[in-house]
Simulated assay, not measured.
Amino acid sequence: MWYAQNSGRRTRQIIGDGAVLLWTALWAAVAVIAYRLVQLLSRPAEDVETAGRSFSSGLTNAGTTAAKLPLVGGKLDAALRNVAGAGDKLASAGDGGQTAVDALAVAGSIGLFVLPVGLVLVLWLPRRLRWTRQAAAAASLAATEDGRELLALRSLMRPLDDVARTAAELPDATPGSLAEGWRNGDPETLDALAEAELERLGLRTA
């Protein structure tokens, strides 16, 4: 059982669940936008990597051509290859920087989603699960006579103002008379107290 039978409580539960889902979707969208924004801002690093590789490739080809020149061909080829090596290092640096940016973008986006959503779930989910367990147990107890006595006892253990409101619904009843009726096993008193506990949990449409 996930929702109450009482229309008022059920409406509040649906609104609460919807708010949590909306909050989750909102922060999921924010996390995706943040990730894409970081990727967009990291484009210059990608350009550095591409330029470095193109520069290195061009110099290597030029060195191969220069090697064919007489007298200075070998020296020129070696010099160009040294410069091409620097281009390779530049490309590698760009590649490593982009990897770090990608990792940072992923970690930041996950954190941006998990922290606010996790905080809400920690506050909301235990309460919803606790109500579900209590409602299921109460519905099962209400089906038996002994179970209704337990529900009546649970109702008597509520704050005094709650017990007083239950007594006000019965003619000439007081919180003390309800306790006495429960001890004596009075059917009318037991039913009134059990119904009050079920209504508290939203398991009655009244």
Rank of each mutant, 00 (worst) to 15 (best):
A66D: 12
A66C: 08
A66Q: 06
A67P: 02
A67W: 08
K68H: 06
K68S: 13
K68P: 03
K68M: 14
L69Y: 10
L69R: 10
L69N: 03
L69F: 13
P70K: 11
V72R: 06
G73I: 08
G73D: 05
G73W: 06
G73R: 02
L76Q: 12
D77I: 06
A78R: 05
A78W: 05
A78I: 07
A79D: 08
R81E: 09
R81L: 12
N82D: 13
V83M: 01
A84Q: 07
G85S: 07
G85R: 09
A86R: 10
A86F: 11
K89T: 13
L90Y: 11
S92M: 05
S92R: 03
A93C: 02
G94R: 02
G94Y: 03
D95I: 03
D95Q: 04
D95E: 13
D95T: 10
G97Q: 05
Q98P: 01
T99D: 05
V101R: 07
D102M: 04
A103D: 00
A103N: 03
A105S: 05
A105M: 01
A107Y: 03
A107W: 00
A107M: 00
S109E: 05
G111S: 03
L112N: 08
V114A: 12
V117T: 12
V117P: 01
G118V: 12
G118A: 11
G118I: 06
V120T: 05
V120D: 07
V120P: 00
V120C: 01
L121D: 00
V122N: 05
V122Q: 09
W124Q: 06
L125I: 08
L125N: 03
P126K: 11
R128L: 09
R128F: 00
R128A: 03
R130N: 10
R130A: 14
R130I: 08
W131S: 04
T132H: 12
Q134T: 07
Q134D: 13
Q134W: 10
A135F: 11
A136W: 01
A137K: 12
A137T: 13
A137S: 11
A139G: 02
A139H: 11
S140R: 07
L141M: 15
A143V: 06
A143K: 14
A143S: 09
T144H: 06
T144Q: 04
E145L: 15
D146S: 14
D146L: 15
D146R: 14
G147Y: 03
G147D: 14
R148M: 07
R148K: 07
L150Q: 15
L151M: 15
A152E: 09
A152M: 02
L153Y: 15
L153Q: 15
R154D: 15
R154Q: 13
S155K: 02
L156E: 01
P159M: 14
L160W: 09
D161C: 10
D161G: 10
D162K: 15
D162A: 15
A164Q: 15
A164I: 03
A164F: 04
R165F: 08
T166Q: 02
A167P: 09
A167G: 11
A168G: 06
E169M: 13
L170V: 11
L170Y: 10
L170F: 00
P171D: 13
P171K: 12
A173E: 08
A173G: 02
T174I: 01
G176V: 00
